[in-house]
Nucleic acid binder design. Structure first.
Lengths: 189, 189
DNA sequence: TTAACAAACTAACAATTGTTAGTTTACATG
DNA sequence: CATGTAAACTAACAATTGTTAGTTTGTTAA
């Protein structure tokens, strides 16, 4: 079990505050106070407020990109790949509840890394859409506007971080399979 | 066609900026500059920055509450009510693309009206969940955790404001019926 | 004991924040 | 012309912002 460095601890606490109030509304004094130190002391460990946000968002975005590449190169059919995507989101979101908030809501406050982030996101969505189109072509999934299909599934998955903490009783395997059922088979009987 | 007052114009422009950068990151000078005037001049029309946010969020939240009450008192069955809810979200979101961003992302910056907003939201979710539970009981919809079902549908609907502007070609009737199909019947063939 | 280093501190900075006070301008109504 | 009003302006404020410089403290290694 690797020890958490002081820098990692600051980033973790920052992510928690960013989730509660958003990046812009969190001051370095807020963050320092939560750490039990003075604001200036933070700079022994981190370079800037901006750097904290960059780290939180980019590391998560790259994790999703990596997961998508693995799924794409798997030999599953389309529905199988979708189920793997759902699992990927459940896994990453549950392990990074706080960071997911920044990824969703504060990416526009990136500066030098903003274009890189956007490329990762666009590529991810292209891959996702590609899987859906393949499924339509092969007759695996229903022939409906793939854009709306992707939107519907992806926004649900991207918002998982809001709901997961509320349901500590619900285990993650169960959540994944319930989401599979709802997102893929619908709710109609 | 009622003329837009200067105050309404400021609120509309503010909502647009809030969508781009979030409430906290938008300064009164940003807003004034977008209006083509000086920051101090804004105060001839509005009371405070906080007031602008209150107005944007509460008016939208009340609009959703009102819509839900009408749907609940209708004589539709459960699936019919769900379709009406989808229509409600498509309608309000398309008419208030900017405001919806504040409703989703900046409600935590409400002060005196925060508890009132939270009550509206909790009540709305209770009503929504009630419709789902009724549908499960009557055998209309599949017997799956209603919490996850609501989460899935509601987050998709709440995020509509992100996607609607990108697809100007897609008309709203069509979007509603595509969403009906995807959210209710799923994507599996 | 001494040297090195991690990690805290105090004090201060220049810039930016929301907001107020008081004034000016332009136009419509009597 | 005189008056009232809507809507802009300039100037300034006290508070807060992210950050830097320089210093102190406590622990570890030689």
């Amino acid at each position: 079990m690797k020890q958490e460095t002081r820098k990692e601890e600051i980033i973790r606490v920052a992510a928690k505050l960013f989730k509660e109030k958003g990046y812009s509304a969190v001051t370095m004094r807020d963050l320092a106070s939560e750490m039990g130190i003075k604001a200036a002391s933070l700079y022994n460990h981190i370079n800037s407020k901006q750097d904290i946000l960059d780290t939180i968002i980019i590391s998560l975005a790259e994790e999703f990109t990596e997961g998508m590449h693995i799924i794409q190169s798997s030999r599953e059919n389309c529905i199988g790949k979708l189920k793997q995507i759902i699992q990927l989101h459940v896994k990453i979101s549950s392990q990074n509840i706080y960071g997911m908030a920044s990824l969703n809501n504060d990416w526009m406050h990136l500066k030098t890394k903003r274009d890189y982030y956007k490329k990762l996101r666009v590529d991810y969505e292209d891959d996702f859409r590609g899987i859906l189109k393949e499924g339509i072509a092969s007759g695996e999934i229903v022939d409906v506007n793939p854009e709306v299909m992707m939107f519907s599934i992806l926004t649900t998955l991207r918002s998982l971080y809001i709901w997961i903490p509320k349901k500590e009783d619900l285990n993650l395997e169960e959540l994944s399979s319930t989401l599979n059922q709802i997102l893929i088979d619908g709710i109609n009987k």
